[in-house]
């Protein structure tokens, strides 16, 4: 198949970027989207041009490294699929595709389609952990977990932190990511001691990074490769109100 690409090219963080058009005349329908870019990059390199930078690692949809906008959709048109698992059979011969990096103030473009997502790391650092004494792993069944809590927590824990939710959100909000990380911990018994302070800190961290606010569009849920539900955001909101009403700033503090 023949595919025409309009790709965002930007040589560095502060450089001015623009779209560049490339023809891919020999695309096999069995290729993944990234493999198509690999072939294009080989051609660009042998012509002495800079290859298109994009992030990738496992290429099996579980690491959260890859991702960019394809025709205005985060990770492209196939639901619950990262860009590395998106195959060219999803497209038609002669398709024209616009590739853009995730766009958010908190996700500055590093190069071409690569953005810096360390803002997510800082949200996790603010509270996405449990404080526990280290040692050998406890016996698996020593802390009973309700089945429905375990299921909901696991669904939230499926978040791979790819950033598609932020990219797709009309407000560039990181609410789905933050809410998923909160639900993952807060629904389990191990997450209870720091539940309120965790919610407060991660919400504040999300604001500090310069993400937008949630207006319940649900575009994030639609493009999430792991199908994380927006109901987690409602739980985050409820937890934040609870934290304001019932926790004093010192209580549960883990700061030295």
């Amino acid at each position: 198949m023949r595919i025409k690409l309009h790709v965002w090219r930007q040589s560095g963080r502060d450089a001015k970027g623009d779209f560049e058009t490339h023809e891919c005349p020999d695309v096999s329908e069995h290729m993944s989207f990234l493999e198509m870019l690999d072939v294009l990059n080989e051609r660009l390199e042998s012509a002495g041009k800079a290859p298109i930078a994009f992030e990738h690692d496992c290429r099996e949809g579980i690491c959260g490294s890859c991702g960019f906008m394809i025709n205005g959709q985060a990770h492209g048109p196939q639901p619950r699929t990262t860009v590395c698992q998106l195959h060219m059979r999803t497209f038609k011969d002669g398709d024209e595709l616009t590739l853009e990096p995730w766009r958010a103030k908190a996700f500055p473009v590093v190069r071409d389609l690569v953005v810096d997502r360390s803002a997510f790391d800082r949200i996790i650092q603010a509270g996405g952990y449990i404080s526990t004494n280290t040692g050998s792993a406890p016996e698996a069944n020593s802390v009973p977990v309700r089945k429905d809590s375990a299921d909901k927590s696991f669904d939230a824990a499926a978040c791979i932190g790819c950033g598609a939710c932020v990219a797709m959100c009309p407000n560039a909000s990181a609410s789905l990511f933050t809410a998923a990380k909160l639900a993952h911990m807060n629904l389990l018994p191990q997450g209870q001691p720091e539940r309120l302070v965790r919610g407060e800190r991660m919400v504040v961290a999300m604001d500090v990074e310069g993400f937008g606010h949630c207006t319940n569009h649900s575009d994030c849920e639609a493009v999430c490769p792991k199908g994380i539900s927006v109901t987690n955001i409602a739980m985050m909101n409820r937890g934040f109100v609870e934290a304001t009403l019932f926790s004093s700033p010192r209580e549960g503090s883990t700061e030295d």
Binding site: H6, M69, G72, R103, P170, S173, G212, H217, D219, V223
Partner: peptide, 29 residues
């Protein structure tokens, strides 16, 4: 306050953006 904050959250917009689950109602608030 929220609109001002959020307007700063995406300084550079997309050339293409396709609505997924958001509605006419939600986008015109």
């Amino acid at each position: 306050k929220l609109v001002r904050q959020t307007a700063a959250a995406r300084p550079e917009g997309y050339r293409k953006w396709t609505a997924q689950a958001s509605t006419f109602y939600s986008r015109t608030m």
